[in-house]
Amino acid sequence: MLAELDSLKATALAELGRLQDAKALEDWRIRYLGRKGTVTQALRGLSALPLEERRALGVAANALKALLEEGYAQRLQALRKAELSARLRREALDLTLPGRPPALGRLHPTTQMLRQICGVFASMGFQVVEGPEVEWDYYNFEALNIPADHPARDMWDTLWIDGADPQGQRARLLRTHTSPMQIRVMEQTRPPVRVVVPGKVYRYEATDATHESMFHQVEGLAVDEGITFADLKGTLYEFAKALFGVERKVRFRCDYFPFVEPGVEMAIDCFACAGKGCRLCSGTGWIEIMGAGMVHPEVLRRVSYDPERYTGFAFGLGLERIAMLKWGIDDIRLFYANDLRFLRQF
């Protein structure tokens, strides 16, 4: 009888080892461990045996049952694992298929650059304000020390607004720079003044790769007691470093704008050729970034600021020009052509 159990054990384990799927395993379990299974039957048959024999065989039969149950559990787990991995293999993705593109929205490059520039000045205490694009001649020119027939008017080719107005002819125009806001801000507040003014400006100008009839400027103005040319240099130097990198060199040279004295043009050393001279900097090694200067005493007087007491500086930069330099854009007309292939690069 013991020998029978041994042979049963050998057969069952051998079969178990060959099983390849869950169905066969279940059949095997029923065959050996089911209610009518061989092992179950054998255990049941023990009751008919004498006590001594029953005890010895009972131990062996129960051990066999436990062994087969254990084997069954292990086999079941192994089969499930194999099946799972087979299914995963079957269902694996072609990972090389392109990803589903998100509908990504972007800000226009001028908006991005405006935020960058205003952010730098905001960190130095300049507040952002805006002003009208259609202006009186007074704010755009006269109050800025550029009376009618002033030769410097040639520096700004102007688009005039049609129709006479109460003050006379042609006194309305599309602002040629953001500088009129210097006057408007000072008219409305007393020193200290520290503002930046971003906005669109207009020129009567034939367009080409570097000229547009509509573009953006950022104007800056700081007026108070004790503001000096040295502060102008320091502020604009900080700006240049923040925008173009700490390793940039900055050059301040004399230039002329009727509403500042002394007048300044700021340039940075050419990052394309490191100052050696190339096409980008027209061989000079320097790239003009903005015009600036100390606010002209006549301009301060115009807004009833005492020029003996208050001094200040102003600056104005062309946004697209800065963006072009920073991002290597070679044609200003791209900004307003609104080709999505261009806009999506930023």
Binding site: G125, I227, K233, F252, C254, G263
Partner: peptide, 30 residues
């Protein structure tokens, strides 16, 4: 104006000769 002369002095001696300082003046109210 006197400031026109200031510019003459500054541009001939060179803007480079003028120091670089940070704005120390009071901040306007927000």
């Amino acid at each position: 104006l006197p400031d026109d002369l200031v510019e003459e002095v500054a541009r001939i001696t060179g803007y480079d000769a003028i120091p670089t300082t940070t704005l120390a003046a009071a901040l306007p109210a927000v």
